[in-house]
Nucleic acid binder design. Structure first.
Lengths: 208, 208
DNA sequence: TAGATTGTTAATCGATTAACAATC
DNA sequence: TAGATTGTTAATCGATTAACAATC
């Protein structure tokens, strides 16, 4: 799919930002943009933008720049936007409910097919038409359905255990909101959202 | 406060992780640890750990290693744990409510003193004993109270506008959950939690 | 064509790792 | 004291920026 293997994490983390800014430009009917202009918008150097994009292909044209709509689509394809991803969400607490309710992720292609929780009070309830099932049914559910992703919103203490069930159930990625570093096989990708650590980083900077 | 000025972002982002692991060790009554052992636990090199810590002081002892409890406290102090931070939360939607409800941040010293929303249906409701006020009252509230931090959970379209009110109201930091890069003066620190970008990063990695 | 801007190579900068003298 | 492990300097590695020939 990509031109070169082993694109660095630094580059990958910047791609969604390009995608977002280009989406804005598409919305504003901007047809073309140079790396210089885009760089000024985003706050990157033109050089960095060209280097980043050239990890994936030659999307520009000398003397012209980049076609906004085309580049937006290309980056979308690179990131995997548009494909459908079946996900299960585990832990219907504060964060879990927020994620399940947040419609923005549907645009990316995320579809939450089932929600699980250990709390009997929550089991049977529905979030956006998706029923909350008992966590004990997770293993069986994963056997009977092809699930790409697990969204992990359980308390720290249960996170690794639930993670193992997800991994054994065949998920290829875990979006982890639990404050812990999960142990998974190399084939499974983990993306962490560690809110406490984010907050601490902010607090540190505020104290300077 | 710190030994050297200008600690790099790469280091700062790792500090909360040290703090978390050391907190675990304290809980497990571990008295001392060497950079080698800690490195194996976290997945960093011993060298990196020593380099990182020496940005802030000489916390170790040759031939012994680090006193776990002491190092945990020291890093806590560096990060600013324990101090009290007054915060307002703007946007009581999915994410906003989740953050307001999440008690874990209280441990760090975060106290949400008021919540604001534009939706009249939400105004007057309470989340954990904190009343949701009308967004129009934000400016006045900030004039009458000393607020350190704004937690921004409003839709993208309103984010910069609300951000400006927060900045003029004297906040020193903004924890931003809106999918936008905010423009603020240099004195104000912004920490972004861009969930869509996090999800896209995961999706990209899953497709490899 | 001439001007603009890319793709890409080379130079620089910063961050990580290795090595080791200092010292508990 | 001898062994262990730090703090710190030096070496390496990787990422960013600058430069420029290629070309639309």
């Amino acid at each position: 799919m990509e031109k070169k293997k082993n694109v660095s994490m630094a580059v990958i983390k910047r791609m969604p930002k390009y995608y977002r800014y280009l989406g804005e430009l598409v919305k504003n009917d901007v047809d073309r943009i140079s790396s210089k202009e885009l760089g000024e918008k985003i706050g990157f150097t033109a050089s960095q933008i060209r280097q980043d994009l050239n990890n994936f292909g030659d999307f520009g044209q000398q003397g012209y720049g980049y076609n906004v709509k085309e580049l937006h689509n290309q980056i979308g394809t690179i990131l995997g936007v548009g494909k459908e991803y079946n996900a299960v969400l585990i832990g219907a607490g504060n964060i879990g409910q927020a994620i399940a309710n947040y419609s923005r992720f549907t645009d990316i292609g995320l579809g939450i097919t089932a929600i699980f929780d250990a709390n009997p009070k929550l089991v049977g309830m529905r979030i956006r038409d998706v029923e909350i099932k008992d966590i004990d049914e997770l293993k069986e559910y994963l056997e009977e359905n092809t699930i790409d992703m697990g969204i992990l919103c359980v308390p720290r203490i249960n996170a690794q255990k639930v993670c193992d069930v997800l991994v054994n159930g065949g998920v290829k990625g875990i979006w982890n909101f639990a404050p812990i570093d999960l142990h998974v096989p190399e084939t499974v990708k983990v993306e962490n959202v560690h809110l406490s650590e984010s907050l601490l980083t902010l607090v540190y900077q505020m104290n300077k």
